[in-house]
Simulated assay, not measured.
Amino acid sequence: MAADYTRGEMNITSQKNTFDGFIAVSLWTSLVLIVTLLYLTLVFAVGTDWMSSLIGVAIVGVVLGLLTSMKTSWYVTVGGLFVFGVICGGLAQLFSAFLAG
């Protein structure tokens, strides 16, 4: 049984695809966490204005995507997170203005 083995002749495409998928998911998760934590740190710990923090973090997200050679879906995700941040921040600002009178 072990004598039948010849090095380099096994089909490893499924293992390679699984590993590539794992690396892609790990990279996506890491970058989304970096962008999210950077935004939260800038807004709540540093006290920067939410809109300028959001713009800065979106730029950092695009640069990270360029550095890691991400596909177009990454940039769509960064844009979607930006729009989501603008909507949530705008609603929070309107709600706080309503409460203040």
Rank of each mutant, 00 (worst) to 15 (best):
M1W: 00
M1E: 11
A3T: 13
A3N: 13
D4W: 02
Y5A: 07
Y5W: 11
Y5D: 15
Y5E: 15
R7N: 12
E9K: 15
M10L: 15
M10N: 14
N11I: 08
N11G: 05
N11F: 10
N11A: 14
I12D: 15
T13I: 09
S14H: 14
S14K: 15
S14F: 12
Q15L: 13
K16C: 06
N17P: 02
N17E: 14
N17F: 02
T18P: 05
F19A: 13
F22T: 13
I23M: 14
A24M: 15
V25G: 08
L27Q: 09
L27I: 14
L27H: 01
W28L: 13
S30F: 05
S30T: 15
L31W: 00
L31D: 07
V32S: 14
L33T: 14
L33W: 04
I34S: 11
I34R: 12
V35L: 07
V35Y: 01
T36Y: 14
L38N: 08
L38E: 01
L40M: 07
L40E: 06
L40R: 09
L40N: 02
T41G: 14
L42W: 05
L42A: 14
V43Q: 01
F44M: 12
F44P: 00
F44A: 12
G47W: 02
T48C: 10
D49W: 04
D49F: 01
W50L: 09
W50D: 13
W50I: 12
L54I: 07
L54R: 12
L54E: 10
A58E: 08
V62E: 01
V63H: 00
V63G: 04
L64N: 04
G65L: 02
L66M: 13
L67T: 09
L67D: 03
T68W: 06
S69K: 10
S69L: 10
S69D: 06
M70Q: 12
M70P: 04
K71V: 07
K71E: 04
K71P: 08
K71A: 05
T72H: 11
S73A: 10
S73K: 09
S73P: 03
W74T: 09
W74H: 03
Y75S: 02
V76L: 14
T77S: 07
T77F: 11
V78F: 00
V78E: 00
V78M: 05
G79M: 06
G80R: 07
G80K: 07
F82K: 07
F82Y: 08
F82I: 02
F84D: 11
F84R: 12
G85Y: 03
G85M: 04
G85E: 01
V86K: 03
V86G: 01
V86I: 08
I87A: 03
I87Q: 00
C88P: 03
G89Y: 00
G89T: 07
G90H: 01
G90N: 00
L91R: 06
A92G: 04
Q93P: 00
L94E: 03
L94A: 12
L94C: 03
F95G: 04
F95T: 05
S96V: 14
A97E: 11
L99N: 04
L99R: 02
L99G: 01
L99W: 04
A100N: 07
